[in-house]
């Protein structure tokens, strides 16, 4: 039973990874001049849509939860609407947190918000699919000894790894390597750091972190994506590895 579950989990996760990979390739068939770095925001939207769709499909197909007792249409619709509201709220919450962490408040609102959307896609959407709009269940899952199934366990791992990935993604921002994902200002005003030593009064262009017009969320979103994919890949293996040790209350 358990091995079977893990296998299903693995397949589901592979599908999710596949959706992320697809989202980088498919659009280039339809859109001209599409690339992750150049048209980053487009990719963010597409990736978000893909991952959400795959998650929904998986939820409908795999049905990791016991079916709800009440299954009237109105209840389902209400539930769906609630999910949507939760998703939006999580986007706004993330946006606020990013701003609190130092993202610009007024400029680049769209970029920051799309970053919030993609992070919500990686974290909130699976939670909504698996646990439903039920804050208590969420809080339970994300506390010690709170998980009740391997699905929840993998959810825990992928969510945390997405967060960590986007957190780590913030680190390259101050570096002055002038990579396209990091420091290419549209007006070309990113002054190379003055390397002439002597004139103390003429240096420190502060990297590119002040007026990043185009590249701000790239490293963070890529970090979140890598974190999500890594979480997806690792969690079945980790669960398989620890399957003897893991005991769930409800299973």
């Amino acid at each position: 039973m358990k091995d079977n579950d893990i296998k299903r989990l693995l397949y589901a996760h592979l599908l999710c990874i596949f959706s992320v990979i697809l989202s980088t390739f498919i659009p280039s068939l339809f859109l001209e001049r599409f690339s992750i770095l150049e048209t980053h925001l487009t990719w963010l939207c597409i990736c978000s849509v893909f991952v959400t769709a795959v998650n929904l499909v998986l939820y409908l197909v795999v049905k990791p939860n016991a079916p709800s007792k009440r299954s009237s249409l109105s209840h389902k619709v209400a539930r769906f609407l609630k999910c949507c509201i939760y998703f939006l709220m999580s986007c706004f919450c993330f946006h606020v947190i990013f701003v609190l962490y130092g993202a610009p408040l007024i400029e680049l609102v769209l970029e920051t918000f799309l970053f919030a959307v993609i992070l919500s896609t990686f974290t909130t959407v699976p939670c909504l699919c698996l646990l439903g709009p039920n804050i208590k269940a969420w809080l339970r899952v994300f506390s010690r000894n709170g998980v009740a199934s391997i699905w929840e366990n993998s959810l825990q791992i992928t969510t945390i790894s997405s967060f960590i990935g986007s957190w780590l993604g913030a680190f390259p921002i101050p570096l002055d390597w002038e990579r396209p994902w990091q420091c290419s200002l549209t007006e070309g005003r990113c002054l190379h750091q003055e390397k002439r030593g002597g004139t103390l009064s003429q240096i420190f262009t502060y990297g590119c972190s002040i007026k990043t017009t185009k590249v701000w969320p790239i490293s963070c979103t890529l970090g979140a994506t890598f974190g999500y994919v890594a979480g997806l890949a690792v969690s079945p293996l980790w669960i398989y590895w620890n399957r003897k040790r893991l005991t769930y209350k409800n299973n």
Binding site: L191, S201, Q202, I203, F204, T205, Y206, C208, I210
Partner: peptide, 10 residues
């Protein structure tokens, strides 16, 4: 405060 006054950092 910027380490130095430059156009990129206010």
């Amino acid at each position: 405060r910027c380490p130095e006054e430059t156009p990129a950092c206010r």
